[in-house]
């Protein structure tokens, strides 16, 4: 038993309570939701929040990952292990299957598959008839996300219309949709990267090993460290270095870069996060650097 002594919640307790409230609103209002789980740190927090929201019951939704086929094995292994530990159903749908169906067509064979996840996601939504997708996106990640609602409406084509969003007042969330439309729900909208790490520390959440400092071959390009892997081999003329790095965010190999770091524990990562001088996506995402508005463009097309 724990007792509370203060009359107001600490910031982490408040954020946790809000996220649990949102998860329960999705479960209460939507007949067929799904929680997107990639094995990344934000979605790992989402699973803990779902446990706090629904245990001792089962989650009132399955977990789903849209796999580009270009994810780090440490992360997909972790994804499978975590879902099994929780005893919850995990659905994996693959961008490669969409490519085989011809619904995803790459411009060049080495084009990043990251943005094509939208197509596979929309196909999976249709396949299972999901009317709500719960995700771990945060408003502090990117400017276009700062204006996204907690319950964000998508039309039949999965499109987001930033100029025509539902007003969201008090704690009264409107997750209603007609058949074919869906809601994207973001329970940790109000969390920052630092909040996520503080929560991971407090809850002692296990993470895939690549979040911690390790030595990895990389090539320095445009101020980012590009990992050298089977998917992203070194090109002629590249100088390959072995550098001690960690990932601040994990996703498709072709567009996620690690940062130099010797932080090998959550406590050290917290200290680095609190004193860093570069934003999370700025340091790590090759896909956001195309233009000032690239995230907004992808979101309008159905991206998470």
């Amino acid at each position: 038993m724990s007792t509370l002594t203060r009359q107001t919640l600490t910031h982490l307790d408040w954020l946790e309570a809000e996220a649990i409230h949102i998860l329960r609103e999705v479960a209460g209002q939507c007949s067929n939701p799904v929680l997107l789980f990639s094995g990344g740190k934000d979605s790992i927090c989402m699973l803990r929040l779902a446990e706090k929201a629904f245990r001792p019951g089962r989650f009132p939704f399955p977990l789903m990952h849209i796999d580009t086929g270009h994810n780090y094995k440490e992360v997909t292994d972790f994804r499978d292990k975590r879902a099994a530990e929780l005893g919850e159903r995990l659905i994996v749908r693959s961008v490669e299957d969409s490519m085989a169906r011809g619904t995803v067509v790459l411009k060049t064979p080495d084009e990043s598959r990251n943005k094509h996840q939208s197509v596979t996601l929309l196909e999976a939504i249709e396949e299972f008839g999901f009317n709500a997708c719960i995700g771990g996106a945060r408003r502090d990640e990117e400017k276009a996300r700062a204006k996204e609602r907690i319950m964000s409406f998508r039309d039949e084509f999965g499109q987001w219309d930033p100029k025509n969003q539902r007003p969201e007042l008090w704690n009264l969330f409107n997750a209603r949709s007609h058949k074919g439309e869906n809601i994207r729900a973001f329970p940790i909208s109000n969390w920052t990267e630092l909040d996520v790490w503080q929560y991971i520390e407090r809850e002692q959440l296990e993470l895939p090993s690549i979040y911690f400092a390790h030595v990895r071959p990389v090539v320095r390009k445009n101020g980012l460290l590009q990992p050298v892997t089977d998917v992203t081999p070194a090109k002629p003329g590249d100088v390959v270095e072995n550098v001690q790095v960690r990932f601040r965010t994990v996703g498709d190999i072709t567009c996620t870069a690690p940062v130099e770091s010797d932080a090998d524990t959550v406590a050290k990562i917290l200290l680095e996060t609190a004193t860093t001088t570069i934003t999370e996506r700025g340091a790590t995402r090759m896909d956001d650097q195309t233009s000032d508005a690239s995230m907004e463009q992808r979101k309008k097309e159905g991206y998470f």
């Binding site: 038993m1 724990s2 007792t3 509370l4 009359q7 107001t8 919640l9 307790d13 408040w14 946790e16 309570a17 809000e18 649990i20 409230h21 329960r24 446990e51 706090k52 929201a53 245990r55 001792p56």
Partner: peptide
Amino acid sequence: QIGGVSQLRAIHEQS
């Protein structure tokens, strides 16, 4: 309870 763990009381804004 929160997540199946018991506590003695709950205050404003707690889920």
